[in-house]
């Protein structure tokens, strides 16, 4: 690892100032630190977000949304929303491994937008709102392709607000080595329709499978999917662990399983 200056502000304001001055935000570091160890990243200044109390914790707002501070760990989310949003709890409780879940944060995961990460599918599938130090961004606008988000230079995620669906479920088929999602599907049924968000499969990162959403909005059952084709394999990731065609097939299988389990 290259050396760097380190600062650990205690407020969002201080953090934004430090990042605005060229610092790199460090949340749980469960991706960034291994990356830096491999000398694949070389920030001059690291700005740790772990000391900012106002970015931690979970509450429910007046609109009934679950509001999760960006520096809240996966383990805390898994524990805290077990009753209020079981599908989200289940997803958070299966990211990485227990030690990673005690350190990694929702904000860090979303800002990185790894195409195989779990959280983006919950955020997109729930139609959540990503709140930053300067604005609120709808999930549909936030994810802009592999490792790319709507975040601007110096902007940090401070909170994520999840509307709670009537029913939801996340099904992850793991890439067997990394245990990231080879394909992960988050299905959420709201009063006004169904959202299906897919991670792991596409080279463009998380996406909504709109054909399935339309069909499931009419009839929320696995049988609805039987007659449907899997999504196109074009643009799906092909690698050692599975071809695009396999991933496309798994999207359909996992969607059906999520509907049944929701």
């Amino acid at each position: 690892m290259y050396n760097f200056d380190f600062t650990r502000p205690s407020t969002i304001k201080e953090a934004v100032a430090a990042i605005g001055a060229g610092g790199q935000a460090l949340s749980g570091g469960q991706t960034l630190i291994p990356t830096m160890k491999a000398r694949l990243a070389m920030p001059e200044t690291l700005v740790s977000l772990t000391g900012i109390q106002e970015m931690k914790g979970i509450c429910t707002n007046d609109a009934g949304q679950i509001c999760i501070g960006a520096a809240t760990t996966h383990a805390e989310v898994a524990h805290e929303v077990a009753k209020s949003y079981p599908a989200l709890s289940d997803l958070a409780g299966h990211i990485g491994d227990p030690a990673v879940r005690n350190r990694g944060t929702i904000g860090g995961s979303l800002a990185n937008n790894d195409p195989s990460a779990c959280y983006p599918s919950a955020v997109l599938g729930s139609g959540a709102i990503v709140k930053t130090n300067s604005r609120e961004i709808a999930a549909d606008d936030f994810f802009q392709g592999m490792f790319t988000t709507a975040l601007e230079e110096g902007e940090i995620i401070t909170e994520v607000k999840f509307p709670v669906p009537q029913k939801a479920n996340y099904q992850k088929f793991v890439q067997p080595a990394s245990r990231f999602a080879l394909v992960g599907v988050f299905v959420a049924k709201f009063a006004d329709g169904v959202r299906v968000a897919v991670t792991g499969a596409s080279g463009e990162g998380v996406f909504r499978w709109t054909e399935a959403e339309v069909a499931l909005s009419k009839d929320f059952s696995a049988a609805t999917l039987d007659g449907m084709a899997a999504p196109s394999a074009d643009g799906m990731i092909s690698d050692l662990h599975g071809t695009g065609a396999y991933r496309a097939h798994l999207v359909k299988v996992m969607t059906a399983r999520a509907v049944v389990a929701a």
Binding site: G29, Q30, L46, S48, A75, A99, V100
Partner: peptide
């Protein structure tokens, strides 16, 4: 809490 000390500064 359990953590991986190789990935914590």
């Amino acid at each position: 809490k359990s953590m991986k000390s190789c990935s914590v500064l």
